[in-house]
C-alpha cells in the first residue's frame, strides 16, 4: 500500500510541480501572488479539449499502450500557446496597469477577480460536468509485485506524465542556469533596476515569464485532465497545493517549487488512508502553516 501511495503522490506531485514552477517565477519576477494561476491550469485543460475536437481527425492511432496519440500532442501545443496568450492579455489589460498604480495588493486582488471571472466563464461555456480526453479504460500495469510492500501499479498515462515532467524540469533547470533569457529572468527576480542598468529589457523578460509560467500551467492542466478529469474547478482545487509548494520550496526557486510540489503531492497521497480522500487539500494547508511557522523563506528561498 505504502509504495502505491508514494507512486500516486508522485504523479499528483509532478502536476503540482509543473504548476508551481510557473507560479514561483511569476511570484518572484512580478512580485505578487497570482490567484489566477490556477485558472491557467484549467484553461490549458479545456483549450486542449477544444483543440482535440479539431485535431481528432488527424489520426486515430494511439502511442502504444497510452490513451492518446498525435492529436492530443497537437492539442497540448495549441493549449500552451493559447494559455500563454491569455496570460499576456491579462497582464496587458489588468496586472500591468494595477502594478503601475503602485499598490501591490491591488494586483493580488485583481488576480482574485480575474480568477473568479475566468472560472465562471469556463463553467458557462462547458458546464460543470467532468470531461475526459479519452473514454478508453486504461489498465494499470504492475510495476512491483504485491509481495513487495503491497506492490505498485501505474497506468501508462501516469508513467508518461512522470517522464515528461522529469524532462521539463531538467529543461527548465538548464534554461535558467545556462540560457541568457533564463539568467536574465533570475536577474530581474533579484533586482529589476539593476537588470535594466545591465541592458536587460525588463518588460520583455516579464512577457517571457508569463509565457513560460502559463505554458507550464497548461501542461499541468492537460496532465491533470489525462490522469484525473477535466472540471471548471480543477485549477481552484490545485491553487492551495500550488501555493504550498511555492512557499515550501522558497519563492523564486523553481527547483524548490518542484521539490515542494512533490512533497505536497506525496503528503496528500500518504494522508489519504489516515484522514480520508476528502481532506487532501487540508494537508496542503497544514504544510503551509507549518513551513510559515518554522522557516518562512522555504527550503531554498532567497528572500522572505
Amino acid at each position: 500500500m505504502i509504495l502505491q501511495q508514494l507512486a500516486d503522490g508522485l504523479v499528483l506531485g509532478s502536476i503540482i510541480a509543473l504548476g508551481a514552477i510557473g507560479l514561483t517565477l511569476t511570484y518572484a519576477i512580478l512580485r505578487f501572488a497570482n490567484f489566477a494561476h490556477g485558472e491557467f491550469v484549467t484553461f490549458g485543460a479545456y483549450l486542449a479539449l477544444l483543440a482535440l475536437g479539431q485535431f481528432q481527425v488527424l489520426s486515430t492511432t494511439t502511442f502504444g499502450p497510452l490513451s492518446f496519440g498525435w492529436p492530443l500532442l497537437a492539442s497540448l501545443a495549441a493549449a500552451i500557446l493559447a494559455t500563454a496568450g491569455l496570460a499576456l492579455l491579462l497582464d496587458r489589460l489588468l496586472f500591468a496597469r494595477l502594478g503601475r498604480a503602485g499598490v501591490a495588493i491591488a494586483v493580488v486582488m485583481g488576480s482574485f477577480g480575474a480568477a473568479l471571472a475566468l472560472r465562471n466563464l469556463l463553467f458557462f461555456a462547458f458546464g460543470g460536468e467532468p470531461q475526459y480526453y479519452s473514454r478508453a479504460i486504461q489498465i494499470a500495469l504492475p510495476l512491483l509485485p504485491r509481495s513487495v510492500l503491497g506492490g505498485v501499479r501505474a497506468t501508462p498515462d501516469q508513467l508518461a506524465v512522470l517522464g515528461v515532467t522529469a524532462l521539463l524540469v531538467i529543461a527548465m533547470h538548464l534554461f535558467l542556469s545556462r540560457a541568457t533569457l533564463g539568467r536574465a529572468m533570475r536577474a530581474v527576480a533579484h533586482n529589476p533596476q539593476l537588470a535594466t542598468v545591465t541592458g536587460i529589457d525588463v518588460a520583455a523578460v516579464v512577457r517571457w515569464t508569463w509565457i513560460i509560467g502559463a505554458g507550464l500551467a497548461a501542461v499541468a492542466g492537460v496532465f491533470a485532465g489525462l490522469t484525473v478529469q477535466i472540471r471548471p474547478t480543477m485549477g481552484l482545487d490545485l491553487l492551495l497545493p500550488l501555493f504550498a509548494a511555492v512557499i515550501l520550496g522558497g519563492i523564486g526557486s523553481p527547483f524548490g517549487a518542484v521539490l515542494g510540489g512533490l512533497i505536497v503531492g506525496i503528503a496528500e497521497s500518504l494522508a489519504v488512508p489516515l484522514v480520508g480522500a476528502e481532506y487532501r487539500a487540508a494537508v496542503a494547508f497544514l504544510l503551509l502553516i507549518l513551513i510559515l511557522l518554522v522557516r518562512p523563506t522555504g527550503l531554498f528561498g532567497e528572500r522572505g
Binding site: A33, A104, I105, L240, E278, Y279, I289, L292, P296
Partner: peptide, 27 residues
C-alpha cells in the same frame, strides 16, 4: 504565522483556511 510576513502570505493562508474549513464542514 502569516502576519509577520509580507502581505501576500496572509492572502494565501486565509485562502487556505477557507478552503480547509469548507472541507471540514462538508466532510
Amino acid at each position: 504565522p502569516a502576519l509577520r510576513l509580507r502581505h501576500d502570505y496572509l492572502a494565501i493562508t486565509t485562502f487556505g483556511i477557507a478552503v480547509t474549513l469548507q472541507l471540514v464542514a462538508l466532510n
